[in-house]
Computed example of a mutant assay.
Amino acid sequence: MKLEGARIAPFLRNPGAVRGVLLYGEDEGLRRERAEALVAAVAGGRDDPFRVSVVPREAASADPGRLAGEMAAISMMGGRRAVWLRDATNALAAAIETALAVPGDSLLVVEAGALRPAERLRVLFERRQDAAAIACWPETGADLRASIAARLTELDVTVEPDALAWLADHLGADRGVTRQEIEKLALSVGPGGRVDIAACEAVVGDHAGLGLEAAMFAATAGDPARADRALRAAMAEGANPVAVIRTALRHMQRLSLALAEELNRLSPKEAARRARPAVFFRHEQDFARALARWTAPRVAAVSGRLLAAEAACKTTGAPDALIAARAVLEIAHAAASMRA
């Protein structure tokens, strides 16, 4: 069966009589977090050698009967066992199916990367009533902002709205990395502290996100060469094409708001301070150049094209990296042709 949305959290706390769970998707940190939760729910923790057996992919591949043997084993100290297979591939589907057929109550937790709907592992877990498949994709939008805010609250730290938006733009590709950066940020401001954009810029180590932001400031300022360099650097650091498009959309939204509030009449420093989200000082001059070049109708037209580009990036088989890069560079060339 396939588990989605609100059904996931209670299932992770109590998987019931299910014999196997497939955790698949691009977010390795989220996969690992959910796997750990399932193992703890069944075995009471991750470190009990009598109730938890971690099987690397290489071991399972070398010995096709290894998984079935682990599923048949009985804990010397009693209690339900968890068998944890990491980095699984479709080549292990037959061994996994055999393991799920072993009598008993052991739970098989399988981690895998991104899988298409027709791939063997997904089909196996989604069609069985005694198994579950859970997708683990990077959080985005409102879900990501809510997760960041909740974690900061747990750490006794508040966050300004602009800073929360900044964090959502620069984190989220991997749940584990996101949590590490949030904890580092909370430590820097201390218990009872408040996170602002300056603290985010100073602490959060998201070079890909920072590169995307630099690319967009250069693009809207009309500097195609610099925008291209920053974009290439960001994508080399791991920025995915959809994140590129969404960063561009947020940047154009900020520019639209600034134009509506006539921030182009102010000094670069004051315009940067009053922008929402505020503009970090190193981008003040680029932001001022963008305000002098762009008009509200032009920003709206570009935003519409970016929405279309995002939809195109999500089409199976589309050259998403090329689509995203072209969208940013078209903005840069358009800005370069505008009169300041």
Rank of each mutant, 00 (worst) to 15 (best):
L329K: 01
E26L: 14
A301N: 06
V244D: 04
W294I: 06
L255E: 13
A186C: 11
V123A: 14
R305D: 13
L167G: 08
S147C: 07
T295L: 07
A214G: 07
G5R: 02
D228N: 07
K269Y: 04
E119Q: 15
K184I: 03
R232N: 13
K2A: 05
L115P: 01
R273P: 08
L124S: 04
M235R: 15
H170P: 01
I8C: 09
R122V: 03
G193E: 06
A311N: 10
A219H: 14
P161T: 06
S106T: 10
A327D: 12
R145P: 01
A43G: 00
K269D: 13
W137K: 09
A132M: 13
G25N: 05
L171A: 13
M1S: 11
R80C: 00
L155G: 01
E58F: 01
M77F: 12
W166H: 03
I8D: 02
A133Q: 13
R80I: 00
E58Y: 02
A258R: 10
P161Q: 08
A68P: 10
W84G: 00
R250K: 15
R339I: 11
A199T: 05
L187I: 01
M216R: 12
R127W: 06
S75G: 09
T153C: 02
V195S: 03
E58Q: 10
L115H: 02
R13H: 00
A260D: 14
R226H: 10
E4P: 00
A334M: 14
A114R: 14
A260K: 12
R232A: 08
D87Y: 02
A325S: 11
V54T: 05
R194H: 11
G222Q: 04
A340F: 11
L92W: 07
V159M: 03
H333L: 14
A221H: 11
